[in-house]
Design a protein around this nucleic acid. Structure first.
Lengths: 127, 127
DNA sequence: TTTAACTTCTACGATCCGTAGAAGAACTGC
DNA sequence: GCAGTTCTTCTACGGATCGTAGAAGTTAAA
């Protein structure tokens, strides 16, 4: 139950990019600008209705990806976890469904760049 | 475009498990047996119509996960790549969409079991 | 207290997936 | 060669998810 739609993903990207919690209106404007100019993948320069953004935010909330402050008047929304955390979690999810985890890891490592391999070695440290 | 439905996944699991290419009928029977007894997740003991299996196989073929021998009379189907390869590819796909790959890897490594960390060290070898 | 901003409810069309019947194509035994 | 059987393709429907947004209800501001 982890897959996101195109607009849902665009919204998450904005929430992950900004450090502050955002309102639906802010997000709507950012979506309108994010953005024809950028190489943004898909959801660019659309003038969306605010209700559209609110619906998407509600769905993201139900999925546990977003939380909102209900206290403030324009509710403020923010990502529950960082993009890196979320992505890493997704990777574990994908990996977890395999009965041959070690084989998967082997293939995975096999096609990682040398730079990243180096990073991984550092992260793994000594036994 | 990588996510699979429940039945699609069950079929892939069978194709990945068996080493030989299988026919729709074989798969149908295996699906009927794979199986109430097993802890199979979801798609168990259903008596499916063969056309149902064929439809699913066609969809998997369109997605590039399965290929079929059209020459033989009952067409024979097999997975294009091993489960491990496919899963590793999926992991790369998930990772690839992130601008902060190293951060993701860090989180990922952070929540890997010690046994797997050991495996990873071996796989990475020396610089 | 009227109005403006904001949220919730409801809904519709598109796509995807599980499911399968109907119709068409090919093989097999006579 | 023909009839019956087997197999494939085409078409379709119902449920779920997602993009999209109007209508109605609620709260804050003037």
């Amino acid at each position: 139950m982890a897959s996101l739609g195109e607009l849902e993903r665009a919204v998450m990207d904005l929430l992950w990019a900004g450090q502050e919690a955002a309102t639906a209106n802010t997000l709507r404007d950012q979506l309108a600008r994010t953005s024809a100019a950028q190489g943004g993948s898909g959801h660019e320069g659309k003038e969306l209705a605010v209700t559209t953004v609110l619906t998407v935010l509600s769905r993201l909330e139900k999925k546990g990806l977003v939380e909102r402050e209900r206290g403030t008047r324009p509710h403020r929304y923010q990502a529950v976890s960082s993009r890196a955390d979320h992505t890493a979690e997704l990777m574990h999810e994908v990996l977890g469904s395999a009965p041959d985890r070690e084989a998967v890891l082997a293939r995975f490592i096999g096609s990682v760049s040398e730079g990243e391999a180096e990073t991984l070695r550092k992260l793994l440290g000594q036994p």
